[in-house]
Structures are given as structure tokens and as C-alpha cells.
Amino acid sequence: MEQTSGNPHIHRDDEASKIGMWLFIFTEMLLFGGLFIVYSIYRYLHPVAFELAADELDVLVGTANTVILLVSSMTIAMSVTAMQKGNKKLTLALLGATLFLALAFLVNKYFEWGSKISYGLYPGSERLHEFGHGDTLFFGLYYFMTGLHALHIIIGVVIISAVMYRVHKEMVHPTKYALLENTGLYWHLVDLIWIFLFPLFYLVT
């Protein structure tokens, strides 16, 4: 493993903390991987219901949220570059942009879920009961998977805010920025999951 730079008297292993972050990411991939298997099996068992139910979802909102997340992934990746170049102001600005985009994603999600719920499409609703088994499964998975993903976004908002504070206080600085890097990795994971959620729920109709 490579040597870590900085104060030799304080033990610090950035490489190990990064491997730890990756291991956490793998558990997350397996968690969502399992859910994708559930989705694909039920889609295989109820092809027509899943196709019709997916038509209810708004492709425009889904696409907008996809672009929002992709841009936010770029801004946080750029904030690592800015940190490496020692540009604190730009790092904070890019993290702020990421935070703003994360909140925009959640606002979109709020209105999207709101319109579905007001239309009577939510787990346990009368309307879904009338539609039958396939639709109930589709919307159950839709709310659970996008909900779990949105929970990750909310956690990301908290973590990014904490990192911004630490960058501001210079507890994270150009020779010690593993926390920023790992936060970036987490945020890219959230993006990765959405990259698969989007076509499976919104596009494949």
C-alpha cells in the first residue's frame, strides 16, 4: 500500500478508510441487487400488469431527476479535484451545488409521489386493490425502492452538509481529504442505483 502523506506521528491510513468505504458500497449494491431480483421476477410473472403500471409514471419527471443526479455526481467529483488543487472556495461552492441538486431531487420526488398518492396509487389503496395483484406488486416495489433510494439521498444531504462544515473549518484540507473522497464515493453510489431504477420503473413500459 502507498504511504500516506502528512504528520508522521499521527497514524492515519487513507487507503484503508477508502477500502472500508468500498466494502460498505458493496453491501449497498447487494441490498439493491436483491431488490432488483425481486423486481425482475415479479415482472416476469406479471408482464402485462407491470407494463401498464409503469405507464402511470411520468417519464419527464424521471428524466429530470436522472439529469439532476448525474450533474450532482459531477459537481461532487469536481469538488475532490478542487480540494486536491487547494481551492477551498471552489470546493465549498461545488459541494453547495451538490446539496442544492440533492434537495431539488427530493422536491421533485415529493411532487411525484404526491400526485400518485392523490390519484389513489399507494400501498394498500382501494384503487390498487381493484387493479389487481400485478399493479399492487409494481407500486409496492416502486414505493419501496424509490423510497429507500430517497432515504439514501436524505442521508447524503446530512453527510455533505457535515463535510462542508469540516471543509469550512479546515478539518478537511488538501493533505487530508479522505472524508471528502469517501463522501463522493457514497454520492456516486446513490447515482449508480438511480441509473438502474430509472429505466426499470420509468422507461420499460
Binding site: 455526481s73 467529483a77 456516486h188 449508480l192
Partner: peptide, 12 residues
């Protein structure tokens, strides 16, 4: 989607 995921993994 896989192509997009690979781009994110490799570069971001």
C-alpha cells in the same frame, strides 16, 4: 444503464 454505470464507476 450498464454503460452509464461503468462511466460513473471508472471516472467519477
Amino acid at each position: 444503464a450498464t454503460a452509464k454505470a461503468l462511466l460513473v464507476l471508472i471516472y467519477f
